[in-house]
Amino acid sequence: MPVSADPMNTEAAPFIRLRNVAKTFTRDGAEFQALSDASFDIRAGEFVCLVGPSGCGKSTLLRILAGLLPANAGSTVSIGSPADPFRPGRDVGIAFQQPLLLKWRRVLENVMLPAEILGLPMRETRERARDLLNLVGLSQAERKYPYELSGGMQQRVAIARSLVHDPKLVLMDEPFGALDALTRERMNVELLRIWEKSGKTIVLVTHGIGEAVFLGQRVVVLTAGPARMAADIPIELPPQRTLELKTSEAFGAYSRRIYGLLGMS
């Protein structure tokens, strides 16, 4: 551990620092602003939700964090710190709305894919994949093919896959968007449990306001037309979150505030 001259500062150094992050695409000669003005920090181990309507740039922001898209000049995107280094192309795990499992691979081999791509030792990877399947409650299913699983189970496999190479940052783009409402709520509770056990930094994109408040320690609100960041709201709800919380007054107040920011109240 490098000793810093100012220990307080090291303590406060965020894992991810975004300043004036913007992204414009050029389509058929016309410029199109996909994201502007995103400035916020994410601490290591934090669970942050990005919420907003379609076209607000939340998926663009996620792709910038994944290193799949460059941000515009003038933007600052820094991930990691000397105390907590981040290796692009190595330390990122992703889960999308669709499970995107390889149909011809059994569950265990699907989970192992990222580690295979990174060339990690296979024996350890298999162990880890088994542990993760256990964590997502699918230890019985490792020999099954994806088509033998329900949509919710497939998405659990995708979440295990996003963790198998032990990434520091996990990005989730509407991971439960294709599930029915009840399965989705169950998966939310499940995901919080996985997050607590794994200690990962998670950035999750959703357009479900309730989902964002329930999951996030912070909710970053993005608005569309023009696409920009509207607010960064710390969610001070009890750390042990259960579904009853969704009926509480505090939960309702946060939700109302976000609806208001999105011009929907």
């Binding site: 792709r63 994944a66 799949l68 990122v92 992703i94 999308f96 995107l100 894919l113 990222p114 791509i117």
Partner: peptide, 9 residues
């Protein structure tokens, strides 16, 4: 999206 998932790695 699958290509993005492995592309990020």
């Amino acid at each position: 999206e699958l290509l993005e998932l492995v592309g990020a790695l």
